[in-house]
């Protein structure tokens, strides 16, 4: 039994008097692409926020690649190689697409405040590397033509892809994606799926939250189903979605694509 890349052990979080997440146990193995599904309010986004440091757990432990990262700040986790995206904020709307990508590559291009200010050789080299990597990502994902446009002005589907570029730009090892295909039409969803599969094939582990059954079960071999703050079921995608408990939890909640 290999040590998982990410291990969430008995994590709980209360807001006010209510448990958003309770006694949560999740693992992500190296190199896998796993889906996190569940009806609205199941706690999926909260789980991701807890894992990536945006919310501090009340109980439990989170381990990433052997390092205890419970309650650490998100930027620290990014340096360790764990990056998330957001459901509602795909990108920086006022900044250009290129700037978005370069900001995502910040860790690649930064050598400390003093070096950055004084423009030491190392700092300049790093900054160039970051810009070039950002450009190459934009090119790979066919966003280069929008490079100078404000991110908020490009079509929504492209903004979501830009969000992926931003996340990839820091060369993460684990990506946690919050509804990367939400609000997209079928072509765009397929496009995102192709991108994610390519990302996974390049060695990056991925955890995806989404409501789109076909999208997520086609892409992910393993699914984790959350319900009321805990894990209801997990296992091979094809099996899990047929479980009666899962179907019931979802009654009316799971959306088939149009």
């Amino acid at each position: 039994m290999t040590v998982p890349l990410l291990s969430v052990d008995r994590v709980s979080k209360r807001f006010g008097g209510l448990y958003a997440v309770r006694d949560l146990n999740i693992a992500v193995q190296r190199g896998e692409i796993v889906g996190l599904i569940g009806p609205n309010g199941a706690g999926k986004t909260t789980a991701v926020s807890l894992i990536t440091g945006f919310v501090r757990p009340d109980e439990g432990a989170i381990t990433f690649d052997g390092v205890d990262v419970t309650g650490r700040m998100p930027h620290r986790l990014a340096t360790l190689g764990m990056v998330r995206t957001f459901q509602h904020t795909a990108s920086y709307p006022s900044a250009s697409v290129l700037e978005n990508a370069i900001r995502g590559a910040f860790l690649v291009g930064y050598r400390g405040a003093l070096a950055s200010l004084v423009r030491t050789r190392a700092a300049r080299v790093a900054a160039r590397e970051a810009s070039e990597y950002a450009l190459s990502l934009l090119q790979d994902l066919d966003l280069l033509r929008f490079a100078d446009r404000p991110a908020g002005s490009i079509p929504y589907g492209h903004q979501k892809v830009l969000g992926l570029v931003h996340a990839l730009a820091s060369r993460p090892r684990l990506l946690l994606l919050d509804e990367p295909a939400a609000g997209l039409n079928q072509d765009e969803v397929d496009h995102v799926r192709a991108i994610l599969e390519k990302i996974n094939q390049s060695g990056i582990s991925v955890l995806v939250i989404d409501h789109n059954v076909r999208f997520i079960s086609g892409m992910c071999k393993r699914l984790i189903v959350m319900y009321q703050g805990g894990v209801l079921a997990q296992g091979p995608a094809a099996d899990v979605i047929k479980l009666p408990a899962v179907i019931e939890a979802y009654l009316g909640g799971m959306r088939e694509p149009a």
Binding site: G53, P74, A78, F86, P93, R103, F106, Y110, R119
Partner: peptide, 25 residues
């Protein structure tokens, strides 16, 4: 106009995205 300025502009727009990219807001 340095990388620091880039970080400042990023957090000026959205803390969350900046943190996710490793910027200590």
């Amino acid at each position: 106009s340095s990388q620091v300025g880039r970080a400042l502009d990023a957090i000026g727009e959205t803390d969350n995205l900046a943190e996710a990219a490793g910027i200590a807001a």
